[in-house]
Amino acid sequence: MTTPSRMPEPYGQGSGANLADILERVLDKGIVIAGDIRINLLDIELLTIKLRLIVASVDKAKEMGIDWWETDPALSSRARRDELTRENAELRERLARLEELEPSRAQEKEAP
């Protein structure tokens, strides 16, 4: 007499930790994956690629001192506004300096 074969349970079912628990733990603690790829030809380094990946929650990243997304204009509207404000101030300063130089150039042309 044969017994019907049981299909194996899908991955993760019946185990103590499910995907949500694992993800919560990773985001809470953070995980770092690092690696280097080097391509050499006859002891001459042609290419080096350094890979660094950090997976963590925003709060955990800030706790670790990582907050580059807040100052990247491509990711933050506030950073974009700040960059435009800074650029505008620099342009106004350059314009003011040019306008100060212009009267002295006009006087040079009038002199015999």
Rank of each mutant, 00 (worst) to 15 (best):
I44F: 14
Y11F: 10
E87F: 02
S5R: 13
L47Q: 14
L23R: 09
I54W: 01
I54F: 00
L53Y: 07
R105V: 07
E9C: 08
M7H: 09
S15R: 13
A56L: 05
R38S: 14
R94W: 00
E87C: 02
A74M: 05
S57T: 04
V26P: 00
T2W: 05
L75A: 13
D59Y: 04
T71V: 01
N18H: 08
S104N: 00
P73K: 05
R81Q: 10
D36L: 03
T3S: 09
R92G: 09
P10M: 10
D72N: 08
K62A: 11
R80E: 15
R80A: 15
R25M: 13
E99Q: 13
P73E: 08
A17P: 03
A17L: 15
A111V: 04
K109G: 01
L75R: 12
Q13G: 11
R78H: 10
R105Q: 11
R80K: 12
A106I: 09
P10D: 12
D67F: 06
R25F: 07
S104H: 09
I33G: 12
W69I: 06
R81I: 05
V55G: 03
L98R: 11
R92V: 04
A34Q: 13
L41A: 08
P103Y: 04
D72F: 02
Q13F: 15
R25K: 11
L95D: 06
S76P: 02
I37M: 14
N88K: 14
D67I: 01
A20N: 09
N40D: 09
E87N: 07
D28N: 06
A56W: 00
N18A: 05
D28E: 13
L41H: 12
D72C: 01
L84C: 03
Q13C: 08
V55R: 02
E9G: 03
S57N: 05
D21Q: 15
R78F: 06
R81H: 08
L27Q: 06
L75W: 04
L84H: 04
A61K: 10
L75H: 10
K60W: 02
T48G: 10
L95S: 04
V32E: 11
L75N: 07
E24S: 13
L84W: 01
L95I: 13
L101K: 11
V55N: 04
E70I: 01
E102W: 02
D21R: 05
E83T: 05
L19I: 12
W68V: 11
M64T: 01
S5A: 14
I22K: 12
W68T: 05
K29R: 11
D67G: 14
E110Q: 08
E100K: 02
L41F: 10
S15T: 13
N88M: 11
A61Y: 01
E99A: 02
E70S: 01
D28K: 14
P73G: 05
G30Y: 00
G65R: 06
M64F: 13
L19H: 05
T71G: 03
T3P: 02
A17E: 06
S76M: 01
E100V: 00
Y11W: 10
Q13P: 03
K50S: 10
